[in-house]
Design a protein around this nucleic acid. Structure first.
Lengths: 170, 170
DNA sequence: TTGGAATGTCAACAACACTGACATAAGCTG
DNA sequence: CAGCTTATGTCAGTGTTGTTGACATTCCAA
């Protein structure tokens, strides 16, 4: 989207939202909001001896059941060792099931068990509740803008992954 | 989930943006965007043997020069031990100066040195550059919505801190 | 059969958070 | 002044999450 009224003055009227001060406020808003964003799930997880990494794994396994380990790695952007530590505990605890691939037997396909799905629901209910309040308070146009800015802030790879997930879920 | 029809929805026009699917997309957008948000500073910091915690300290000391340790603690939301570890290295490396309070000598007031200010500029230039592109691509209305949603997502305490900082900086 | 891909595992390490305990200095209150 | 509180710093231990590097296993494909 290359914008830019051809004839308008450069600083005329409305590039105010691009001043360093405005950008800094955006940065701080991201920082404080992310804390709120993770606060509710974090509280639940800490009582279960799990952390954010477990939440993320559970979230995306729920979102794309049967996903392979490699696919999950590219979504989460961590090393396989790091993910493996988390997956191992989730599998040991009976929240995640790992099935050997039928076509390619090297691959492991990941699924939530009933217990895993229950925890996922608990976590995402809490996180969605906050998001719902924020969305409702801000209104639909604000939500559209929120998503537009966030999407533009992602790395290109993440944009693709995000879009792919988004389209698969609707 | 069969939805769609813009005109005749059960909830009266437009509460579509509050469906679970929409909320989940918002959640994933936050997750992926935050990765992008921290990516550029993280790259710079990793070459200097610093981490995100150092960045946050530097950012807020720059934002509120002379702030006390306790004030910084409430902004960052970590324990004093955690913050102290970071501050100690920054002071040792000559990026931050700690001055005993004149009125209350128990307090330490924190300032960036010239070197500290230089690093702050490097980091915030990188982070602002990405934010600027995202803001420009999304447009002013989207930016306003972005900020409205983020603000509504914060914990109440953080809303107050955020607002106070915002008003002090403009 | 050989090479490479996917996965898993072990070890070591670092950043960053936590709790708990204790020390010091300074301010405040009775 | 004595005693309590506050602000800060420090030490020790622990946990989660990330990293590298090395190596083994399995299995597909050329």
């Amino acid at each position: 989207m290359a914008e830019g009224r051809p004839g308008a003055t450069p600083m005329g009227e409305s590039l105010l939202f691009l001043t360093d001060e405005q950008l800094r406020q955006g940065i701080e808003a991201m920082f404080f909001a992310y804390r709120g964003f993770t606060a509710d799930p974090d509280r639940i997880l800490s009582e279960l001896a799990y952390g954010r990494a477990h939440h993320r794994a559970i979230h995306f396994i729920n979102r794309a059941p049967g996903t392979t380990v490699n696919n999950l790695l590219s979504i989460l952007g961590v090393t396989k060792q790091s993910l493996n530590r988390v997956l191992r505990t989730l599998i040991e605890d009976g929240l995640v099931e790992s099935r050997v691939g039928k076509i390619d037997k090297r691959e492991r396909h990941l699924f939530l068990t009933a217990d895993g799905a229950a925890l996922e629901k608990t976590l995402s209910d809490a996180q969605r509740a906050r998001m719902r309040v924020a969305f409702r308070d801000a209104g639909p146009e604000a939500v559209a803008g929120f998503r537009r800015v966030l999407e533009a802030m992602m790395d290109r790879d993440m944009q693709h992954i995000y879009t792919r997930l988004k389209d698969s879920g609707s």
